[in-house]
Computed example of a mutant assay.
Amino acid sequence: MAGPIRRRFTLTDLPMVGLAVWALAFPRPYLVCLAALALLPVAVLPLFNRLGADTGAQARPAWMASLAGLAGVAGVLLALRAGMDFRLLDWKLSLALGALLGAALAAAVAPQLLTLPARLVMLALALAAALAWGWGLGVAANGLFDRAPPVIHAAKVLGRRVSRGSRSKSYFLDIAPTNIAGLGDSVSVGFSLYRRVGVGDEVCIDEHAGALHWRWFKIRTCRPDPAALTFAPLHAPFRAS
Score class of each variant (00 low, 15 high):
R164F: 08
D146M: 07
V197L: 11
A228W: 11
L125M: 10
H235T: 13
T55W: 12
G138F: 15
L101S: 08
A68R: 11
A209T: 15
H213V: 11
D90S: 13
W216A: 00
L37N: 02
C204Y: 09
A57Q: 10
R147K: 08
A96V: 15
G69I: 13
A23C: 01
I180Y: 10
L45W: 03
V21S: 02
A25H: 04
V109Q: 10
L137H: 05
L234A: 05
L193G: 11
I5N: 13
A36G: 08
W135I: 00
A130R: 03
D185P: 06
E207Y: 11
Y30G: 07
F238A: 05
I175W: 09
A36P: 02
W63M: 07
V76H: 03
F9L: 12
V32F: 12
A236E: 12
F217T: 14
R7S: 04
S66Y: 06
P237N: 01
P29G: 03
A59E: 14
V44Q: 04
D13M: 15
F238C: 04
R60P: 00
L67Y: 03
A107K: 13
D85K: 07
R60L: 07
W91T: 12
G165E: 08
S94Q: 12
L31M: 14
M16L: 02
Y171H: 03
